[in-house]
Design a binder for these strands. Structure first.
Lengths: 108, 108
DNA sequence: CCTCATAAGTAGATTGGCTACATGTTGCCT
DNA sequence: AGGCAACATGTAGCCAATCTACTTATGAGG
């Protein structure tokens, strides 16, 4: 999968994995890998800045903890984040319809 | 629809509209608008550079003509372009599976 | 002791879609 | 006749998100 195919789609995906339980960055990486069937192996240089950005934007809230001598920053969805996630899901449906309308994949 | 949701998905879409008939730039714009149900209204500053890029890459070939006093540059798919289009369609299927696996839109 | 998995980050390059601008024709409306 | 919408093509420069490559640190297992 090409690098910037993700562009603009990563944010809702990150929000989605913390929808039902707060997770720390590394666990978010693993959750994305697992949910995508091994396709989505984000470099840390993508994920961590994205998390900071989402927190600055008010969609995530974080707090530090220490587990087994390791520091973790755990992120949870805010109510603004939940709204953004819902909007993102809706936008995905539209986007998919646009791409498939143009590509007409039935004629592949 | 967000601006850079398109990132990395525009190229196959452009190739798709000239798959069965050569079209000039303006007609490609209109075809994208029509096939997307009015959602995909590309600015000329996006489309024309993209067409140049696709031609430089060998996926499109162009020639000039004059119709009703107006100059047109008509693009057609090359065989390399056809291969790229097929690959792009396949990549889209993968990409869609990844996003939907993460988003789980059934739980919206 | 060394290396892998866990854990979090930064700096800097890339890149492609965007806004805004530039140019010219045809045809319709007033 | 004047003006504006639609037709038609393009460039310059901005911006933001993802990437590569690097840094730091702990715990566990060989």
């Amino acid at each position: 999968m090409k690098a910037d195919a993700l562009r603009g789609h990563l944010d809702p995906m990150i929000l989605a994995v913390v929808e039902h339980e707060p997770l720390h960055g590394y666990a978010i990486m693993e959750a994305l890998l697992e949910r995508s069937g091994g396709e989505l192996d984000l470099p840390t240089g993508t994920l961590y800045p994205a998390l900071r950005r989402l927190e600055r934007a008010g969609y995530l809230a974080s707090e530090w903890s220490t587990v087994g001598g390791r520091k973790r920053r755990t992120y949870q969805l805010t109510s603004a984040g939940a709204k953004m996630l819902a909007a993102g899901k809706q936008e995905w449906v539209t986007f998919r319809a646009v791409v498939e309308g143009v590509l007409r994949p039935g004629q592949a």
